[in-house]
Design a protein around this nucleic acid. Structure first.
Ligand code: FES
Ligand code: FES
Lengths: 163, 163
DNA sequence: TTAATCGGCGATTAACTTAGTCTTCGATTG
DNA sequence: CAATCGAAGACTAAGTTAATCGCCGATTAA
């Protein structure tokens, strides 16, 4: 049970899109090449991000992707939800309604299962944490963690290839 | 991306084991029948719970399962970890070490990826919440949520079939 | 205008996982 | 000794994941 690799791909790619001015964009090809990722698959990932309104595409040659809103307004959770969908991690197949007692005395007040509620509220704790971290926060964090050299080289890579 | 149904099966089954005295046990067959679950599959789930030291088995005819420690000391997270394994939900394939810059200037200080750290710490929030809820807590919760009648009927079901 | 380059999208695939079954085994009961 | 239980492993069918391929429409530059 794990999130798909698409989540990792997406988050890492979005880092490079944060600084891109709104009249520019970065192509899938560049993003894939730079990170050593399969280009076609990355294209699918960006399809989901696009549908979720996180990025917007620029069609045609010299096209690519850019953020479709401020990095301040894109949280980690937004990205995960775009890739993985809205379903909770805990899978409740409502087994308590298949139970002996429920089969016997048929008409029950449709109540929530306590176990399910516990799981969902625990997940919410994780989501709240992810909702509190935005892409712009991540950008600042990376500025303080990564060497100035590396960050500069990265930006140079994407700017030169899109001139 | 979801936890397997085994987690739901396990948690629901463990509810019925909380009150069982340490010289008694409940058989897989009863648990499966009562909840309308496939018996053979449930047996696999209990295999995992047994390996994790949550339940212990009583072999032979009239055998079954019982808790192998106090319900106070069994948390929701213990159960999930027993079924799903210890791996984090977020899958980090270390893609940053396949990147262009890392391929170029080869020898890097082996650093952690900030994105990964964010994800892991968010997961930890969820796990902490699940670690704080034990089976005995769940039992009390169910006492206040479910009708006295249902709880009694349930206990009767398992006691009469194991006499 | 036209060829080359981009993203969008759907079909397809291979590998893997999940949910579940079957069968054989060893232990216990009566 | 036979019937009943759990343990364990082989097996299977269905679903998912990661990835590829091919075709389309939009865009650009020659
Ligand atoms: S019925 Fe699904 S968790 Fe209780
Ligand atoms: S390398 Fe895996 S999350 Fe950054």
């Amino acid at each position: 049970m794990q999130y798909s690799v698409g989540v990792e791909y997406a988050l890492h790619c979005l880092v490079y899109l944060i600084d891109v001015p709104s009249n520019d964009s970065i192509g899938i090809k560049n993003l894939a090449e730079f990170q050593g990722l399969p280009e076609t698959f990355l294209s699918k990932v960006f399809g989901k991000l696009s549908k979720a309104g996180i990025v917007s595409s620029v069609p045609g040659v010299k096209g690519g992707y850019r953020l479709s809103k401020s990095p301040e307004d894109i949280s980690f959770w937004d990205v995960i939800e775009a890739i993985e969908g809205p379903n909770p991690i805990f899978q409740c197949k409502n087994i308590k309604e298949n139970g002996y007692l429920y089969r016997k005395n048929c008409c029950q007040a449709p109540s929530f299962c306590t176990i399910n509620l516990v799981m969902l509220s625990a997940e919410e704790k994780m989501r709240d944490d992810l909702r509190s971290k935005s892409l712009s926060w991540l950008n600042e964090e990376l500025d303080s963690v990564l060497s100035k050299q590396i960050r500069e080289d990265t930006r140079k890579y994407f700017s030169k290839s899109n001139t």
